[in-house]
Design a protein around this nucleic acid. Structure first.
Lengths: 159, 159
DNA sequence: ACTAACATTGACGTGCGCGTCAATGTTGGT
DNA sequence: ACCAACATTGACGCGCACGTCAATGTTAGT
């Protein structure tokens, strides 16, 4: 559960999986499903995950565990991320300026939608939290009343 | 998505399912898995869900969709709820007082754990929210810079 | 050159959370 | 008495998100 910092080296699948606390199978599966773009390979064919790949794996975990989305949904959400790295890569190269701006606008929109979604969830969680907190209070009151009545049994009122 | 208010009548499975936006199959499945205690039946064997049953169904939906727990986990969490209604039912009847208090304490503990769990999730969500908000800001800056450079193209600096 | 540790693809298996028949019974109204 | 609408149990099916072999290849160290 110790949030590993972003590594600066490339990692093989074993290390990558351990770091994220996932199995190798899971990483290959995510690749199969298009959630991870195919990582670079060593000469022998071993996968090599870049620091960016590693970050993306973390993001997937986050979206899955935290927000409970399906992999298909997560794939949709990662479009914004893709555009982001795409822009970074294209930034220094020519590429039509207006086109880049358009991509940025799209990415902005998608991210805003994600934000709205998170806000929705947080509101609902907050109200659930309130409900539970009130419930605890009621238990407390009940237990206090109980303690009082017990007190009276052994040591009658001193008023 | 309109949060139906708590009904005061007993509902058959059809109405109950529609109300919660679930299928009949799902309700029977929840019963099968012990998430719902067997509802009362009509003479012919038709299920009749009490208002409490209906509330419980909503709670299950909440825990599932909002927090993304498995049905097994939710079953665990509902223990507190069970104790709660149990206490209510036993309250007027004799039943050893200390025993009731013990149950209340247990229910309190379970509820506190759920609260802690929710707080954990909310914290993580909050930090994810921050990350995304920052990202939007960076897009904005980028787009502003872009707009400025475009402005210069058509209308050179007036300084 | 050998070996242990690590990786590859392919294929089948699994648990969860239901969906979907099929065959049958119940309820309520005309 | 009949009929449509609604329900019942049982059983098989299915998509998702991987788990788990099996057979094979790669890498790194001695």
């Amino acid at each position: 559960m110790t949030d590993e910092p972003r590594p600066e080296r490339f990692l093989q699948i074993g290390e990558a999986a351990e770091r994220a606390n996932l199995t190798q199978r899971t990483l290959r599966y995510y690749e199969e499903k298009g959630l991870l773009n195919p990582p670079t390979r060593m000469d022998g064919g071993f996968r090599l995950y870049s620091p960016e790949d590693i970050e993306r794996i973390d993001r997937i975990k986050q979206l899955k565990e935290l927000l409970g989305f399906s992999l298909a949904e997560i794939k949709e959400m990662l479009v914004a991320e893709d555009v982001r790295t795409q822009i970074k890569a294209e930034w220094r190269r020519d590429a039509d300026a207006e086109e880049k701006a358009e991509k940025a606008r799209t990415a902005r929109e998608v991210t805003l939608q994600q934000l709205a979604l998170i806000d929705q969830k947080m509101e609902k969680m907050s109200s659930l939290r309130e409900e539970l907190a009130q419930r605890v209070q009621r238990y407390d009151e009940l237990l206090v009343r109980f303690a009082e009545s017990k007190e009276q049994e052994t040591a009658p009122s001193q008023s």
